[in-house]
Design a protein around this nucleic acid. Structure first.
Lengths: 225, 225
DNA sequence: TCAAAAGTGTTAGATTTACACCCATGA
DNA sequence: TCATGGGTGTAAATCTAACACTTTTGA
């Protein structure tokens, strides 16, 4: 292969995943203790190096798959983090991605194996390198996104109650919302359809289960929360 | 230096600048013909490789400075672009940044020297690699940003008329707005202050010149357009 | 029978949009 | 004197936010 750019320097490139999940009415992030020097033992996002034969998006997908066994997960790029000394070992530029997963899809065996934990996003410890910044930015981007795109369903089981959906919005935005106003807006969205199924786990009376109808959304195509 | 990560691959990293300017009531981007193989002669953003001794932000600042001679310019990261074959020469991952400059600050000599041109953002030709995507994404981010942060002033001279400001918003958002409603909202923002100066370039009657008061903005700190 | 969560409408206030005419001046 | 861009207010419509009680049922 010819080398067009040989006078320039190459740099290590990694990806880091901010994996969001919704559990116990809280927005959580999957983090673990770093298993590599330097920084071994510090709280850290799960990440990996980018290979020459994969795109950044592919590297992020692969990394997420290694950790969770999940494919076709909703992932979006947060941005590139490139301070000179962000990694104490060597110069490494990292591209952060956030992922939204349904916690019940997540294989417990893999979780135990990688020793990662779900931590409340409001209660993140001090982390390795610039990982706290990455989480902050990912959260902000996700908050913006959830206002204009129906991504909340990525964090829920395919059948969910309106209370679950409301608690999810509250956890993401960090503030409570009025139940009646919330439900009013949801009812206007035809792509959030009520099933005849009833969930009795949380209440004696039972709550209707709803589902997100993707095809209907794509026709309808307005969303605003 | 110890090498912690030597089993991994390094990759060429570049930055590309989407430089926005406002001229003739249009939002424009500064682009030129690529002077490097491969792709020589194609329309291209101005970019450069990231060096090991500079952060990504510094690389972007340096690249912008090389082209325009300007420092302390408003720049924000658009994101990392990392398809495997995005560059026909070799694997290069590029981090795009957008910059907002006041076209009258831009040194004509440097413009001639680098043979770059201001092109209407609605009329961008087919460009090298994924540069069209970069411009699209930069524009979208900028459109979002301008709604919640007072960045428009970066694109204007320090003294400007309300009509200029309105035309700028229209150019950025791609739609016309009502003059009275626009001015009503501006008047509510105390940090956009009227001076006693009158601009007579466009009208016989003359238009009041306004200026952005940064200190007042930082106190006041609400913005919504 | 009662505790606990589900479900349901109305109204006041705030925000947004639509809209048309007079003013000042240089050519 | 007239053509050109500068400057101004009001009313209708829409959207948002606040607010409390009834229902169901398992324990």
């Amino acid at each position: 292969m010819t080398s067009f750019y040989k006078e320039h320097q190459k740099i290590f490139l990694s990806v880091d995943c901010i994996i969001f999940g919704f559990e116990e009415n809280k927005l959580k992030v999957l983090i673990g203790k770093r298993k590599m020097d330097p920084g071994r033992g510090e709280w850290s996002l799960y990440g990996g190096f980018v290979r020459n034969d994969e795109s950044l998006d592919e590297a992020a997908d692969r990394t997420l798959y290694e950790l969770t066994g999940l494919r076709n997960v909703y992932m979006r790029q947060v941005g590139a983090f490139g301070s000179i000394n962000r990694d104490p070992g060597e110069r490494v530029v990292s591209v952060a991605y956030y992922a939204l997963i349904n916690v019940t899809d997540y294989n417990d065996k893999l979780q135990a194996e990688h020793q990662v934990e779900w931590v409340d996003v409001n209660d993140i410890p001090t982390m390795f390198s610039d990982h706290n910044d990455m989480i902050r930015r990912a959260r902000k981007l996700m908050q913006q996104k959830i206002k204009t795109e129906p991504i909340s369903f990525q964090l829920l089981p395919s059948l969910f109650t309106l209370t679950q959906l409301q608690r999810l919005y509250e956890a993401v935005n960090g503030e409570e919302v009025d139940k009646r106003n919330f439900r009013k807006r949801i009812k206007e969205m035809e792509f959030i359809e009520r099933t005849d199924l009833i969930d009795k786990q949380l209440s004696k009376r039972g709550a209707s289960l709803y589902r997100f109808n993707k095809k209907m959304f794509e026709k309808d195509a307005t969303f605003k929360l």
